[in-house]
Amino acid sequence: MLAGGQSLVQLLKFRRCRPSALVDINGIPGLDAIERRDGELHVGALVRQQALLDDPQVAESWPLLREAAGFVGYPETRRRGTLAGSLAFAAPWAELTAAAVALDAQLDICSAAGQRSLAAREFFRGPGETALGDGELIVAVRFPAPAPGTGAAFHEVSVRHRDYAQVAAAAQVSPDGHGELVLLCVAPTPHRVDVSEALTRDDAIADLLGRLDPLDDVEASASYRQRVAPVLARRALRDAAERAHRRAPA
């Protein structure tokens, strides 16, 4: 299934993937809408990653999505690559998977057999593995709106700017003090952390993240990821909380 092709075509070129057929969905009408529906942000399967940076509604109400999108690839690849494709590809370093989990996104999945919805929090099964079955396609991703005034922050380290994340932390904090934290590359799937305590106690993060199971690959070792994850988590939560404070109505 070909939408943006920024990951799939790479795989074809590496000859790691040799499909007998490739279906280009770019011609299907109605999949390219990004809009607010019933309080949710509805992102069609053909919405490019760059749209998440350009859309004023996203900037206003889903700041975490925008923050995360800023770390995805390069401008040229963001103009082709899609949000849905990034989730379906499920690379362990994919920033948008963290945002989807943190924001409790719902995926609308379609196949010849019918349609179903699945929470992003249930969707990821491992690096490159998802709950998507044969013949299934994500047609839309829906994001519930965070509470007004929610602050968000995304922190990432990579070898160079915009390389694959060595570690990343997506955080958002609502004005009433509810926090979400999702880390990348410290587990086989986006790693959601219960941060209720961490928001009140500074050293709680280190305790909380004491026993991760980070990836170990050519970009970074597990031990580096273990060391840096709490740092990014702390910084992301701090920034998100500060922004929530700033955004909160007086």
Binding site: F14, R160, H161, R162, V218, E219
Partner: peptide, 16 residues
């Protein structure tokens, strides 16, 4: 070789 493409063999970019 674990970094036989530009995916993992990194050259300095404009921001680095």
């Amino acid at each position: 070789l674990r970094n036989e493409t530009f995916e993992h063999y990194h050259l300095p970019s404009s921001l680095d």
